[in-house]
Every structure is written in C-alpha cells, then in structure tokens.
Amino acid sequence: MIFSKILIPVDGSKHSDSAVEYGFELAQITKAQVILLHCHPPVPSGLGEPNFQKAIDDSTRRSYAILEKYTQHPKAQDVELSEKIIGGKTTTSITTVAETENCDLIIIGSKGKTDLEGLLMGSVTHKVLNTAHCPVLVIK
C-alpha cells in the first residue's frame, strides 16, 4: 500500500519520538506528506480576562515548543511537513484531523499498556485504534 498523507500525533514523549522517527522514514520511502498534530487540553472559558488569554498563550507556546522538537529533526527536511495544534479531547481531535485531512495512516506512539489497561484507563492509542477511519500503526 502506498501512503500519501500520514498523521503523527505528538506529545513530546519518548513514545512520540519513536513514532516520528518511524513516520519520517516511511514518508521518505512512500513520498507521503506528514502532518504533525499536537492536542492540548481545552482552556476553561470561565477564567475571565486577562487569565483566559494568558492560559491560551501559555498553552500555544508549549504546543509550539513540542512541535519544534520534531520539525528540527534532521529527517524533517526530507519530507513534506505540516503542523497542527488543536485544543480539546485528544482522541476526538486525532480522528477528526485524520478524517478531515484525508489521511491514509495514523502513526501513534504507545506506552505499551495491555488491552485491559487501555480499556480501563482510557488509553488514547486504544481509543484511536477503535475509532479511526484509516489504518493505525502503533509504535512501541
């Protein structure tokens, strides 16, 4: 199967590092576009000004710092790369972006929880596996 668009959700963890490494290599081989996605928790609107704007600015700054770690990766120069930052529920954001962007594949890092742990604790990877419209490649 040839992939044209790969979504890689990232959170700055070593599991994301592994997913990005694998994703960049696969994108080089298949000439696929890569979308790096960082999802941050929603900012409560009841904070009031100026606290609300400060919280949004802080969240945005942290998100860009996480994405920069991957856009500065040496292999990032060899792939067509775009970045997205979305606030909200992580699983929903990942699956919505994958569908909206017509991604062929989601590559996601995993902490290696068992199926039971994922079910009981609500693993993002477990939920994405069960709700995505496209194939999901889990990297440990």
Rank of each mutant, 00 (worst) to 15 (best):
I2H: 12
F3C: 10
F3E: 02
F3K: 14
K5N: 03
K5D: 02
I6V: 12
L7W: 03
L7E: 09
I8C: 08
V10L: 05
V10P: 11
G12Q: 01
K14H: 06
K14I: 04
S16H: 01
S16E: 07
D17R: 13
A19E: 03
V20G: 11
Y22E: 11
G23F: 00
F24H: 09
E25P: 07
Q28N: 13
Q28P: 10
K31M: 03
Q33P: 11
V34S: 07
L37P: 14
L37T: 05
C39I: 08
C39A: 09
H40S: 04
P41N: 09
P41S: 09
P42I: 01
L47I: 11
L47M: 15
E49Q: 12
E49L: 04
P50W: 00
P50A: 08
A55E: 12
A55C: 13
I56T: 10
I56H: 11
D57T: 15
D58I: 14
D58W: 13
T60P: 03
T60Q: 13
R62L: 06
R62N: 08
Y64T: 10
Y64H: 15
Y64L: 10
Y64E: 12
A65D: 12
E68W: 00
E68L: 08
Y70K: 08
Q72Y: 00
H73R: 04
H73N: 07
P74I: 01
Q77D: 13
L81S: 11
S82L: 09
K84I: 13
K84L: 12
K89S: 14
K89Y: 15
V97G: 06
T100F: 01
N102T: 08
N102G: 05
D104M: 10
L105N: 08
I107D: 09
I108R: 00
I108Q: 02
G109Y: 01
K113T: 11
K113M: 12
T114Q: 11
G118H: 03
L119Q: 14
L120A: 14
S123M: 06
T125P: 01
K127P: 00
L129Q: 10
P135W: 07
V138D: 06
K140P: 11
